[in-house]
Design a protein around this nucleic acid. Sequence first.
DNA 1: GAAACAATTCAGTATCGCTACATTGAGTTG
DNA 2: CAACTCAATGTAGCGATACTGAATTGTTTC
Lengths: 307, 307
Amino acid sequence: MDERQLRILRELEALGSLRAVAEALHVTPSAVTQQLQALQRGVGVPLTERRGRTLGLTEAGSALAAAAVDVHVALARAREVARGATDRPRGEVSVSGFNSIALTLFPALVQRFGRGEPVAVRLFDEDVAQEAFPRLAGRYDLVLAHRLDHTPAWPGTVRVTALLHEPLDVALPPEHPLAAKRRLSPSDVADQPWISTHEGFPVVATVDAIAAAAGHPVDIVHRVNEFSVAAELVRAGCGVALVPRWTVPRPRGVVLRPLARIPARRHVDVLCRPEQLTRAAVRAVLAQLRVLADDLRERSEVGEADA
Amino acid sequence: MDERQLRILRELEALGSLRAVAEALHVTPSAVTQQLQALQRGVGVPLTERRGRTLGLTEAGSALAAAAVDVHVALARAREVARGATDRPRGEVSVSGFNSIALTLFPALVQRFGRGEPVAVRLFDEDVAQEAFPRLAGRYDLVLAHRLDHTPAWPGTVRVTALLHEPLDVALPPEHPLAAKRRLSPSDVADQPWISTHEGFPVVATVDAIAAAAGHPVDIVHRVNEFSVAAELVRAGCGVALVPRWTVPRPRGVVLRPLARIPARRHVDVLCRPEQLTRAAVRAVLAQLRVLADDLRERSEVGEADA
DNA sequence: GAAACAATTCAGTATCGCTACATTGAGTTG
DNA sequence: CAACTCAATGTAGCGATACTGAATTGTTTC
């Protein structure tokens, strides 16, 4: 039972297949099998079981994976102590962000934690389907992720820090008849041509909810993940779209109207593995992200009042 | 930085020499040197330094050793989880005890945790000099240890559970003139021939304190570690001795008189490495030791009242 | 200054974890 | 239902690594 074997166990829990574990740890599947067997030989209890053609954890395996978290946390803290970085944060922190948030937060972040600073960020844009965000936490120290209100919460394998709880508004051309209303009901918009996102990405679920509320499917004419592109299409009169209120720069020639009766908000959260929070540098970046997100919301609310 | 290297670091802190670490871990000194070098290569900071001809930890080394405790605690807990022994204590627990306490507690302990029970104790008698008790915690899960009131506290490498705070009384033959007094002052006993213990063992320090209070050295005629043997010598009229009030079976033909003005008590404690406390079996034995010790004191106080 | 002891260095050896390739087994597709 | 695909497991061989044992350096003691 060593650090590596316990890491394999945790990855298997997070990723759900031996092959994925092997890729995440940059080894062959054969090596993973052998290490898992060695671990099970050591404890005498079966920790894994075949589930169809993939591999899952038994109850004992899950219990051990949970206990393994503390081992990795303790080891991370020991490394932090050894580097003498407990008091004064130092080192590199990798951060991944989805499109819209990267656009707004990354520049401010790199300004504060640029190259040469004691704490330096390495930035990556990663826009993936909602259920894929937790897996990114194995590759990056901090993961900026978003999910819609009524979707399942993030899994227990990651620690969650909430940044924003951001309303999604309906974007319309100013000359659109619906633009005259202050709030739009699901039935108002259900008959409009829609610009949604790719399957599995946020917003899709809310468009589905609108269809459910109206009692009939909606007409989705385009699927565009990039909100600023979607806004341009709205301006071009292709249809209506849902766009986040704060993180997307207000596009010219488009008006936003809140949606009534349907919970149209997304959570913008930072996901990370528990052991990352032991690093002072990671905590510093996380704190700054919260500051930036708060700024963003406040600045936007003020702008709202001006409009 | 793996479990073994961190263990070496902790042992070096506890034992104070590379050779002792090697013996404790059953490897050659050469292996220890190499592992320490590998560890230092990994962290980039010197963790050890020569102190005369032995090896000590630097400040960074001590810090890392402290952090290593959490790693070993987490690993011990993981092993406990893997064995499925978190709820129902199972397994063997090794216990070492010094002479007088072994005599009184071991039989009751083995009755509760005998062979075949889910929790079984392995008992060892180890009567060592006071400063050697903490080192025993590396060899045994639980160590019954004693120290006099005014001696330095146990080092931070061990967790301490107090069992008794036991008075030391002066043992006299009944016909001795001093036996008429209810309490004895240092000057009363300073001129008596003394039966003390070997150098470094408890009681010696208290006898020294008596000499200091009287202003002149006392006459130590015998040095006997075993209290029941010392009591026999007292009965034979060889001199007076200090004996613990509760843990030593009251010897026939000897009376005990409390000592005034000098703090003549010993702590009877259980020492263990922090990671041992994660094991439910160890905690069960420890709890039983506390029960037995409380019984012992109460039973003895009652007997006191009878006499 | 010699002897005793602690730590280190430097071979040589055994063990262990990895890759590469072959095989088994489960799900999918024509 | 055969053919295919993909996940996981077994096996042989290679390279890294942790150990032992002997020789060496440095420190304390008599």
